[in-house]
Amino acid sequence: MESLVQNILNALQWGSFYSLIALGYTLVYGVLLLINFAHGDIVMVGAYIAFFVSSLLLGHYHAIPIALSGGVALALTIPLTMILTSVVGVSLERIAYRPLRRKGAHRLYVVITALMCGLILENGNLALLGASRKKFPEMVDKVIYTFGTVSVTNLKIAVILTAFLVFFLLQFIVTKTKIGMAMRAISYDKFAVPLMGIPIDSVIVFTFILGSSMAGLAGVLFALSYPILDPYMGLTIGWKAFIAAVVGGIGDIRGAFAGGFILGFVEIMVVAFFPSTYRDLFSFSILLFILTLRPTGLFGVPKTTKI
């Protein structure tokens, strides 16, 4: 029983990462119908940016006059990382995706470009920084709360809470604000929207800022929880988060959130009861099964096709 509760807590944390990344996928997809396959690598870039920013703030490079204490450094690292990561995301959009969109290229060519951008980020990182893994600095002391045999760290609680907060924030932005309405409108009809006087490019840039800053946040939290960084860390988790977003019904904020947690739960529970090499087998079979039952995902609405 206790181990079950412990596993549920672990699954919540693991699912939070998937959710945070899947939210970024789904935001971009919801507006542009573009699978931004570089998103997982933007998470990786976020983690690396967090590494350099925090090392700088903690005084490891002797570039700032005083070394900050861990808590203050963390409080500064998170917003700085989010800003810098969104710069990366927006520049990808400006350099690679926008010209293609302007030319009216087939949607899948943009997807391939996104894949290539991901490869550049990964291998560019590898070429620049070398293959040695980076150890993320420990910024806050680990506090372990124990209830009976169940133990929770403060970090785990923070990760789960952040995921929920981000979800409510994004849900609010997309459904309640004016810019959210513009985002939904673009996904509904890309050609009619500019006629209504909506600046389509700035809305798209805003979407990328939102999505990439969430990726940056996920990168910081991931690096805090699993403090070893390597250039390929974003690859698998990115693909899996995309799968989670689709199972939830891609383009829907609730769907991405729920899908991330479902994938997290399935993976942790499979590992709890079977050898860990069976993890992908079981989790993907279950996801396939869900998609067979609901071909457009949990929250997805089937689109009627007209001739």
Partner: peptide, 22 residues
Amino acid sequence: FKTRGDYLAIITIAANYIIITL
């Protein structure tokens, strides 16, 4: 038969992972 587009893309990715883990 039932799914199309990006949902099918996912199924193919999942199939790849399933085959490799098998």
